[in-house]
Computed example of a mutant assay.
Amino acid sequence: MFDGFETPCLILDPQRLRRNAERMLEHCAARNVALRPHLKTTKSAEVARIATGGRMSHVTVSTLAEAQYFARAGFNDLLYAVGITPNKFARVAGIMAETGKTITLCVDSIEMAQALAESAVTAPALIEIDCGEHRGGLPAETDELIAIGRALGLQLRGVISHAGHSYATDQIAEVKSVAKAEISAANAAAGQLRAAGMAVEVVSIGSTPTVMHADSFDGVTEVRAGVYLFCDLSQLSRNICTLDDMALSVLTTVIGHNRKAGVLTLDAGALAMSKDIGANAFLSSAHYGWLCDTKTLEPSGLSINAVHQEHGTVQVADPVWYERLPIGSTVRVLPGHACLTAAGGYGAYHTTDGQVWPRVDGW
């Protein structure tokens, strides 16, 4: 199937991808909430069209390179879900002027709200709310919220939150609790702004676990999620997906045997797989990815146990594996965290039905 492929390379199963996308689109439609897919995982216009169901708008990005790429591909209403700073104003303005597309920005401080309002950038903005992860945003109850809203003036569109701490558990009941708190925080912030006389059109929340398991989206206008498109061992370990949902893998070649040390070496290391081992919290066998059969994607029971920049080390307890996986043979590896694996600078996806889908990298 992949004879002659230079490795490492990203392998994407379009059938699984479409199934995952359709499931989420149906999930959100049934709950009367708009889906704004996060494309930081996929970085591909072909995947984006599948994720939106063909709608060329309402997508999320995490780099301005992505914003430019998707705007040029025809997507409108892009949300840049990373706090904006003045050194990026010119590029945002340039992308919008070149493409005619809208990029919504995020702020979480009075300083940035004032800087944006005083700049030549006419982009709409959301105020980021910290709902518990403490990565970015400000508490919903802070007095600064009103000041930021007033500083933004007509550029204010609403509020945004992200419950990344939903990954701290593998218990669905706890995910539901996190989702409830996230939605409550976003609605509380929106309510304060409205009470102060400001229009709030957008209440945006999301992470794949909370979008999948929230009991209600009352008050929420849109949800954001991204890794559900590919899935990975982190999602599997937290009961968010099944093995058959995993659409992304890395094709890698066996480049060495060290029988004395009891290891074999792959050409997929830290740059190809990432150093994220978050899946191991609830799936101790995940390590840096599961080795699978190249054709069937059936797990072999082996993992990448250690990574260097371009080398992946696999511990081998049974020497029969040296015969099963001779030097020059290939395996596919299911990643621990698809977002970081796919961000590794691959340039394109090779699909299981023989296509090559370009993608964007960098910032």
Rank of each mutant, 00 (worst) to 15 (best):
82 V>L: 08
348 A>C: 06
48 A>K: 07
343 A>N: 13
71 A>I: 04
38 H>R: 03
257 H>I: 11
12 L>M: 14
180 K>I: 00
114 Q>R: 15
124 P>A: 07
230 F>Q: 03
58 H>R: 13
75 F>A: 06
324 R>N: 12
274 S>E: 01
104 T>I: 11
325 L>A: 06
321 W>I: 07
243 L>K: 00
180 K>R: 14
69 Y>T: 06
51 A>L: 11
46 E>Q: 15
354 G>Y: 04
215 D>M: 06
12 L>G: 07
106 C>P: 01
334 L>F: 12
212 M>V: 01
325 L>M: 13
4 G>F: 04
231 C>M: 12
148 I>H: 06
333 V>I: 15
194 R>W: 01
192 Q>D: 01
80 Y>G: 07
313 T>R: 08
341 T>G: 04
280 N>L: 05
241 C>R: 02
65 A>N: 12
146 I>D: 04
164 G>T: 05
5 F>R: 02
336 G>K: 04
199 A>F: 03
254 V>F: 01
319 P>C: 05
296 T>Y: 12
245 D>Y: 06
304 I>N: 05
231 C>R: 13
133 E>A: 15
239 N>K: 11
114 Q>M: 11
332 R>F: 01
126 L>G: 00
35 L>I: 03
275 K>Y: 05
203 V>Q: 06
179 A>N: 05
291 L>S: 08
44 S>D: 09
86 P>G: 09
193 L>G: 07
268 A>R: 02
122 T>I: 11
